[in-house]
Design a protein around this nucleic acid. Sequence first.
DNA 1: TATCGGCTCCCTGATTGATG
DNA 2: CATCAATCAGGGAGCCGATA
Length: 200
Amino acid sequence: MYQHAAYRFRGVPVHDSTDEFDYESLIAACRRQDAKALRQLYERDAGYLLGVAQRIVRDRQLAEDVLHDAFVSIWTQAATFDATRGSGRGWLFSIVRHQALNTVRRRSKEVDADEETLDAHMHADTSSLPTSFSLGADPLMRGRLAGCLDRLDGPRRASILYAYLDGCSHSEIAERLRSPLGTVKAWVRRGLQSLRECME
DNA sequence: TATCGGCTCCCTGATTGATG
DNA sequence: CATCAATCAGGGAGCCGATA
């Protein structure tokens, strides 16, 4: 068995699931030291894998380092990939994830100079309902998103902002809004659906 | 139609084992 | 002994059916 999370990984909305990108063949090509294959893998999934790394290390620069190291590993360890144990993409994910986790572990042993800043951020006052947001997206997109958010009723908008800007779990949102968990889940879900429809 | 909550699946972080 | 890789378990998210 290979119960590794990565090998169970599915449903990543990066590329259309209907296209047939052959990860296994490209990994096999990497094994034969085919640099073009590695480049293809990188171009295909670097964006997504960077996101995976960033979620774990919580630092863009560090995530880029992780991604670089991961692709070095992919290049040097391509021979260890066994297609019978799982998908090629899962294997890529697994390497990036382990690389990121190891980075986090290493860093946790170091004294973090920014700890106070982080602590201050973690304990920032979030007791009031979120009514605005700041995103790194381009201004046009941000404007559209703001407009779509305004169309939502209060609780739905608040649920989405709590979830995706404050990073609250559903239970935390339920607690903050003093609403049942199931209701909050439905608000977030329907709110996202409405946003999607509005943005199309 | 909206709310509610149970169920299932997946992700994350911790832990353990292997290797140099 | 330190580092890296693999596995496991718990918590959270999403889905869906029951109910008001």
